[in-house]
Amino acid sequence: MKNQYEPIQTSIVKIEQLSPINKLFTLKIKNKQTRNTFKFRHGQFFILSFPGFGEAPFGFCSSPTIRETFQVSIDQRGSLTSKLFKSKVGDNIGIRGPYGNGFDQKKIKNRNLVLVAGGCGLSPLRTIIQDANLHPEKFQNIQVFYGCRNPELLVFKDDYNQWNKNIEMNLTVDAPDKNWKGDIGVVTNLLTPEKISSDSVAILVGPPIMYKFVIQKLIELGLNEKDIYVSLERRMHCGIGVCQHCVLVGGKYVCTDGPLFSYAEIKDTPEGI
């Protein structure tokens, strides 16, 4: 019987600083056979661990079509991520997964896709953005609306010009610096009837406070509750629906039923958003 908690060994092949508090880690699964069979879908996550510092869930942030390595972009927030920030290329990192329901691409077939991100919430959405850049034929129109506290904290800033060729990037910050040319204010301000067609599918990744306002706005713009997806963050220990830490009271587990939920699915869940 396979031990579900045994980490898959990866090694860090590249570390890039994306913002003062965020680093992008490129990981490669060491065992060739495992690497060849390891597959994930948009919206799935994995559990990363460092011996002595425990485990925590993170979303993939590279295109699932890139199979040799995968990437994760991490904000430094606690003891595990601080330990990761001190690691170097060549160090070993344990992972397990992939976990979660993932995003069914059929749902966005021939539909306009609206991606709304706050802070480091852009990172998990980058699986779609990168995939769309590598395989534009797989997607219809993609619009990204990305808000951050200040320009310094934007992640993947060097890629926006490249991305703009295939997708529409809309940026806003709360506190601009003197070089800032984009919008100023909350991301909700960017969501206007001129920009967003009511038959779009939206995926939101960011802090819960952003969800409240963005969902309200998207519903006003005529989007169906079933077409608004949010990614929920919860404490997780197992990833397989047993340990109870990620429960949404009422019957769902973020690790197995999520982390992406349509607003229609969770709007009646207390504390859901």
Partner: peptide, 24 residues
Amino acid sequence: CFCFKIKDEIKKDEILRSREWDSC
């Protein structure tokens, strides 16, 4: 009741990962 947490413990020469009872 079967909730648990996964916990790492740093010992002298090794690090132990265990599954412990937790309470909601």
